[in-house]
Design a binder for these strands. Structure first.
Lengths: 122, 122
DNA sequence: ATATTAATGAACTATTTGGTTGACTGTTTG
DNA sequence: CAAACAGTCAACCAAATAGTTCATTAATAT
């Protein structure tokens, strides 16, 4: 069964729904970075970046830690795995349905062929 | 490289960020359904369901078609594949980084061992 | 022909989101 | 110490979201 009630998924998928936040995540693949070094695709204030970072942290997609006057962010891959797992289960379920449909079609074709065979003999 | 600027992904991930909409998608795995037959986990008006369906359609996650007075929805798996692909690439990139880190660590261990070896001989 | 049903549209509300600016805190540097 | 820097806080704003209700349209059933 594919679960859909999972508050964490709400946060994760919603966080992924914004291009700035996806950009931050992709940036962090290269390793940790302080806030003001993050590569942001659209110009915006540091305050705005700080808010996006908060959203990502709330979703569990990153962790962050203040060192001196700088705040360093780094990926926490577990949240992303949760999203991947959901999509994976969904996909597997979908594939299974396709298989069932396929074997149903095969079965009905066999039925049909048998019927024709019987008719030709009758 | 992992892309992050893709307006469609914005719609797809945002659509997935809501439990009602995920429920609708999971429901539709069983096959097409008319609006008023969708299994909605939280009580809400049909108008609200209709809006969620619109969001899903805009994201490309479903298609819908009016037959008589009823509107039937069914999955369009391509949008979901897009999300899966993004997460997949992201994950692969992450794994590769881990591998690099791993071989870096291995390399530095070898370095260290060699150094010790030389020292013991020197 | 009338009543019922499925869905949509319009108007409204409350909350959230994504951004801004300006003032402030704490850290580093000259 | 003073200046510059990194980040946060608070207040504000516009637009989007998630829901409501009531009226309406169009199709179906009695």
């Amino acid at each position: 069964m594919v679960e859909y009630i999972d508050t964490r998924l709400d946060y994760i998928f919603s966080a992924l729904g914004d291009p700035t936040r996806r950009a931050i995540l992709v940036d962090l693949l290269e390793g940790e970075s302080k806030l003001s070094d993050l590569e942001i695709p659209y110009p915006m204030s540091l305050t705005a970046v700080s808010k996006h970072v908060k959203v990502l942290a709330k979703a569990g997609l990153i962790t962050h830690e203040k060192r001196g006057r700088e705040r360093y962010c780094k990926l926490d891959p577990r949240a992303m795995e949760r999203a991947r797992t959901w999509l994976h289960h969904y996909h597997r379920y979908w594939e299974r349905k396709l298989d069932q449909l396929d074997s149903y079609l095969t079965a009905s074709k066999i039925e049909e062929a048998l019927k024709k065979h019987r008719e030709s003999k009758g």
